[in-house]
């Protein structure tokens, strides 16, 4: 998956109208909430086989940092 595709999918699962970039401050977006994080966890688990913990996300601030959770599966 390219990083652009990742950004599009992340915005979709957040159900947000706010376009994302690599450096967007996620916590400034209202839709980056516990529901979005849980959806993200399920997505990573299902599509990349990567298990993440809810608590990990509190330390992440940008889509680039979130993408890093799944390592090389997201390129670019």
């Amino acid at each position: 998956m390219t990083f652009e595709q990742f950004l599009t999918e992340l915005q979709f699962i957040m159900q947000s109208d706010t376009p994302l970039t690599a450096d967007t401050h996620l916590w400034d977006i209202e839709e980056w909430d516990s529901l979005a994080i849980m959806s993200c966890m399920a997505w990573f688990d299902k599509n990349f086989g990567v298990k993440t913990k809810f608590a990990q996300y509190s330390a992440l601030d940008t889509p680039a940092q979130v993408a890093a959770l799944v390592g090389d599966a997201i390129k670019g």
């Binding site: 516990s34 994080i37 849980m38 966890m41 399920a42 688990d45 298990k51 913990k53 809810f54 608590a55």
Partner: peptide, 11 residues
């Protein structure tokens, strides 16, 4: 603790 409960249901 909803987040930790979700960890349980997923893992």
């Amino acid at each position: 603790d909803g987040g930790a409960v979700f960890d349980f249901t997923l893992n």
